[in-house]
């Protein structure tokens, strides 16, 4: 799979990933190495959290990234946000390789891409006051003249729906929804262009979740933001995204515009996900689950990672990794069944 294969590889792409892999290796410590010399069968364990992923995101677009736990979606988000370095592949922002940037440009790019985190508790430093949480980076990077900083923070708080009178409080004095708003204000403070939202509403109650989702949509318009919206919740992704990527065990298995994907899923895994997501529709449903567990990413099945659970698995699926190939306008899917149908 190469970069030009992906959908939004047009010149308009704001963010482009090509061939991104992220491996985590648990190295053997001294004791384990000695044990190995003595004959113990210990090996370094490598997790392919993200395995050769390419994608492009256009300016102003909202891209949803869906997957179950351990599929690598959060790791991919962190590579995009610059928190993790990719083990292989390049991240290009506005046409320039992020890893090659230096000095002022490097800083500008780092600030342009911000992240909203899942846990409203642990994503805020419990020892800092709200004003400091929001204003620290602004002050350190001198984005706003010192005398204006207070007003700037107050404006941001108002913008995300917080009372600026609370700026002297500590995070533990806020509810989950409010804490998430503080996290959003912190990200907005450095005037980002691109937000990576990692399960940003998963920890919130339904009614609060709706408030925060609405806030995200307002902010998109007001600040002309581009989003990579990572979630396990298909409903949230469907509601918010223009385009959806489905990830399974480190690989993107399907990519399509939202309506097309939800209307006519191509990959068997996407089909299963859509069939099983609980929906608020009247009438008792009979759940017909796909069988089997999600395999461990330490030792994923060969070929297509999904084949042990796939009802249509063939011999070829067990040996050959399916490539992400176009299946329609703006649509890609990594499944051998498409070749069979064509052939």
């Amino acid at each position: 799979m190469t970069a030009p294969d992906t959908a939004a590889s047009a010149a308009a792409a704001l963010m482009e990933l090509s061939g991104i892999s992220k491996r985590f290796t648990r190295r053997l410590d001294a004791a384990a190495k000695i044990a190995q010399l003595l004959g113990a069968r210990l090996r370094e364990e490598t997790v392919h959290a993200v395995d050769d992923v390419s994608l492009a995101i256009a300016e102003g677009e909202v891209v949803g990234l869906v997957g179950e736990s351990g599929c690598g979606k959060s790791t991919l988000g962190r590579v995009v946000a610059g928190i993790h370095q990719a083990s292989a592949g390049t991240v290009t922002y506005r046409g320039r390789d992020v890893a090659a940037l230096e000095g002022r440009e490097r800083m500008a790019t780092a600030l342009a891409i911000q992240m909203i985190f899942q846990d409203p508790m642990s994503s805020l430093n419990p020892r800092l006051r709200v004003a400091e949480i929001i204003g620290e980076a602004v002050r350190v990077h001198r984005l706003v003249p010192r005398p204006d900083l207070d007003d700037y923070v107050a404006d941001l708080m108002r913008r995300v729906g917080l009372d600026p009178d609370y700026r002297k409080r500590y995070p533990h004095q806020f509810s989950g929804g409010q804490r998430q708003r503080i996290g959003i204000a912190r990200a907005l403070a450095v005037r980002p262009e691109f937000l990576v939202c990692d399960e940003a509403v998963a920890a919130l109650d339904v009614s609060i979740q709706a408030q925060v989702l609405n806030l995200f949509m307002e902010l998109r318009q007001d600040f002309n933001l581009t989003y990579l919206f990572i979630s396990h919740d298909l409903g949230v992704v469907e509601h918010l995204s223009d385009r959806v990527l489905i990830m399974y065990l480190g690989r993107i298995v399907e990519e399509a515009p939202t309506e097309a994907l939800f209307g006519d899923p191509n990959h068997p895994y996407t089909q299963a996900l859509l069939a099983e997501v609980p929906r608020l529709e009247p009438g008792r449903r009979i759940f017909k689950p796909i069988t089997g567990e999600i395999p461990s990413p330490i030792n994923p099945p060969p070929g297509c990672h999904f084949h042990p659970r796939c009802p249509h698995a063939m011999e070829r699926c067990r040996v050959e990794r399916p490539a992400l190939r176009p299946t329609g306008p703006g649509r890609f899917s990594a499944c051998h069944l498409n070749d069979e149908a064509r052939g």
Binding site: G82, M115, S123, N125, V140, R186
Partner: peptide, 13 residues
């Protein structure tokens, strides 16, 4: 914890 990641993201030293 995520607040350290957030600080990294904000390009703090």
């Amino acid at each position: 914890k995520e607040y350290i990641e957030a600080a990294t993201c904000l390009a703090l030293s």
